[in-house]
Design a protein around this nucleic acid. Structure first.
Ligand SMILES: [Mn+2]
Ligand SMILES: [Mn+2]
Ligand SMILES: [Mn+2]
Ligand SMILES: [Mn+2]
Lengths: 141, 141
DNA sequence: TTTACCTTATAGCCTATTGCATATTATTTC
DNA sequence: GAAATAATATGCAATAGGCTATAAGGTAAA
């Protein structure tokens, strides 16, 4: 077993990351919806996430409070500069994680499912290792 | 963007996995403590997880309710057969994820931190892909 | 055996995430 | 412009996961 401090640090780190999971998923999704259809409404977000509309409404209050989105009443949700920046970072990370799994030989459905969860816990350093492995082609089979 | 059903399934899957994160970490940790020192007390668990003792007490109620642990008053926590089985599965998965990151060239500290979060979202299929990549040595640098 | 220490239990409070049911408000359509 | 439809807001409730402070119960040393 690792020493108490190291292990404790690991658990704290993971708990911290868990607090950002929803924010990251929402912001990425909103950006996708805006890019694809010019609008992101609560009902669409709810459908995509598989939660109820009131659940989305509540989370949007938090996203506004944290400065990631703005809202035009009955006109949908929009990203602030901070929101857009976060969306781009998060999407790039998500895509890289999924691509990496695919390159490893994981089937497409599993890669999609696993990436949706894993992405939030992959650090920049690990992401860089994924990128390198993809680039050098060592994973091709 | 993926179709609504697929994306929704991914988010649901990840939410489901999130509900097991704590259970998995607790059971793995309790097993480690029992193996190493013959006892797992609330205070030790709390120290290792970086949470308070009352927080552990509350979670233990849940772990007992879900059939993973039993308790001897003032004598610590013990694993049921189900708890032991879960612990073994979870530990093997955790170790494999961490080993895989290390083999990819990720530094030890980062590998430890990332693995603590990622492990809970890695499916058996992906785990098998990790195992294969490790075995065939394609990741060695 | 009595005190000191260790461990666990409890009470009370908080934030985060989710749900259901229903009301309200805006937009569209006829 | 009124009715139908779509979208959002709100109230109420539940579960999960944290915390601090304090009480209480066991163990073990003196
Ligand atoms: Mn994502
Ligand atoms: Mn995700
Ligand atoms: Mn673990
Ligand atoms: Mn973990």
């Amino acid at each position: 077993m690792p020493d108490v401090e190291s292990q404790c640090e690991g658990f704290r780190h993971a708990r911290e990351a868990r607090r950002n999971v929803l924010i990251e998923d929402y912001v990425e999704l909103i950006d996708d919806l805006l890019t694809e259809g010019q609008e992101a409404r609560q009902v669409d977000i709810a459908d995509r996430l598989g939660v109820s509309q009131p659940t989305v409404a509540k989370m949007l209050v938090r996203l506004v409070a944290e400065g990631f989105v703005t809202r035009k009443p009955y006109r949908g949700i929009f990203l602030t500069d901070a929101g857009l920046a976060l969306a781009e970072t998060v999407r790039a990370r998500h895509q890289l994680v999924e691509e990496f799994l695919l390159a490893l030989g994981v089937d497409a459905v599993t890669a999609r499912l696993d990436a949706e969860g894993m992405e939030h816990f992959v650090s920049d350093a690990t992401l860089e290792a994924f990128r390198t492995a993809l680039k050098t082609g060592v994973l091709r089979r």
